[in-house]
Write a protein that binds this DNA or RNA. Sequence first.
RNA 1: GCCCCCGUAGCUCAGUUGGAUAGAGCAUCGGUUUCCUAAACCGAGGGUCGCAGGUUCGAUUCCUGCCGGGGGUACCA
Length: 600
Amino acid sequence: MSKDQFKQLFADKAAQAFKALYQEAYAATGEKEVFNARFLLEHLEKPKDPSMGRFAFPVFRYAKLLGGKPPDIAGRVVAEINRLLGDNAICTAAAVSGFVNVRVDSSELASRTLGDVLSRESHYGDSDFGQNRKYLIEYCSANIAKPYGVGHLRSTIIGNSLRRVYKKLGFDVIGINYLGDWGTQFGKMIVAFRMWGEKVNLEKDAVKQLLELYVRFHDKARKDPTLDEEARQAFKQLEDGDSEAVQLWERLKTISLAELDRIHNMLGIEFDIITGESFLNDKMEPLVECLQKAGLTEISRGALVVPLDDPNLPPCMLKKGDGATLYATRDLAGLIYRWETYHFYESLYVVGTAQSDYFKQIFKVVSMLEEAESVPETDRMTGRAKHIDFGWVLFEGETMATRAGKVIFLEDVIDRAVALAREKILEKNPSLDEIDATAHKIGVGAVIFSQFSVRRHKDVNFDWDEVLSFEGETGPYLQYTHARLCSLLRNYGKDITSRIDTALLDNVEERRVIELLADFPEIIEDAARTYDPHVIAAYLLRLAAALNKFYQRKDEKGRIDKIISDNQALSAARMALVKSVQTVLREGLYLLGMEAPEEM
RNA sequence: GCCCCCGUAGCUCAGUUGGAUAGAGCAUCGGUUUCCUAAACCGAGGGUCGCAGGUUCGAUUCCUGCCGGGGGUACCA
């Protein structure tokens, strides 16, 4: 996808070199393996230590094909590649044991990279790969009968970031908040209201009161199992349109939506569509009929199910014994509705790992249906719907169960982080103009970034000290680095241009920063391919660390080698670098869903 | 029982198509500011990559078994 001219050039020459040196093997193999430039391009690696080169090609596994020992092969090929590249080439190869290491001309890399960043600005790293392709991403998916705790944070923040990442790659992205606004939990709330409702005043603190009702219900239901049965009946009444039930449901929904909206505004979370399970009410019956017609359903223990041809999966239930629908019924109807409406390239469900078997069931039903209906291969959605799972958010090593009332309110987390950021500003930069607004950006940034500090699949511990830490590998560290660069740009005062002498940017710190800048487009693609914004977060930390090292580098005499100095040509070159890093940091933070204040 | 995820430094974690001396942050100890924002930077100590096999020129990475933690396993979502 990304075009790297250095790699392209090397791959072409390397293929030529292999053909010239190993004619017999080439005759036997043909335009494959090391004799194919494209193959070489796809098998290039990044050396662990950047000082060994910009990229590398290991020849070990071709020793049998070519005959000889890996170091000898590498040596011969390197000599031939360099001969083909000629003098003054933009890259040169070197053999180190069995590796062909390639160094690129740093001045050339600098002028291309900085030119690219400075001219494209926030569009640096954009791609048109997704053009005319739709991407659906479902995230947040809060259950509106429950409070918004930090447990929902991960889905919301990962999804919000992925939405931005795929937009950057040119996709037409639709971010969906598919609210849990239907189902037995509303039956529970209805029963709870019948028992204790008269004491509840929803005018103030509605959300916390609803939580109390929820917890109280589960408390009582543990001792009295008939309550669960009552709740199921109440939900059935809701589905049948009972007016008392519907009225209460609408009230709960209005309150919860307003609350969600408020918190998402605080966090800067965006959606294109806010919908809910109830939207699918009239789409379930056609789906069920469709599955029945395809001969996929059966009655089992009084319930309507689709038995799955996978021994590790239980049947997918469409209707309970009492005829009421389930989450799966709605999700299936929703998936088919979305496919028919959008014909998406991919549709992602950003939902916790606990539901991975559940999604396997759903996707299995879809593929069985498409098989049964003999849908043409090109028109199938099988494989396009994906469960983007993530580990639990643990608190003191335990899952935060809403039912037990063990919830940390998201809002409390944000409030504490913002308050702490404010304290920090008053301590470090009390003359700052917009203290409150900046404190908000920093506090929220810390909370958001904390979710990206580990890979998706791992459980993440919610630790107040970690979330509220602003030092080291944190969001505020990235924001601070960005603000520092903005400050430099203000102090410099002159226009930034890419018409600079890039040969002046020749110390290791500067070269490292430039290499990282050049990596950015590839990093975005990695994040998209793995569906994990953590890749971007880790990259930004590397970039910021490299930048800070450059910022505080010392000359031979042990003095800070300042970026802005009397040497105008050098200052101009360094400031082009500064501007480029500032641009990439800001864009990277944007992709994570964070703001980049210019002063803090 | 079966299925999925996780196990790397004291703590929290990177290391993803197998590759070169396994890296960061926090914490600990020491250093850097006549001030381009010290929310930073430099240095030191700290490792049986859960255990045992296997595949490979090469395994933290892939395969098998075991141990430990978490989750799931049809009328919740």
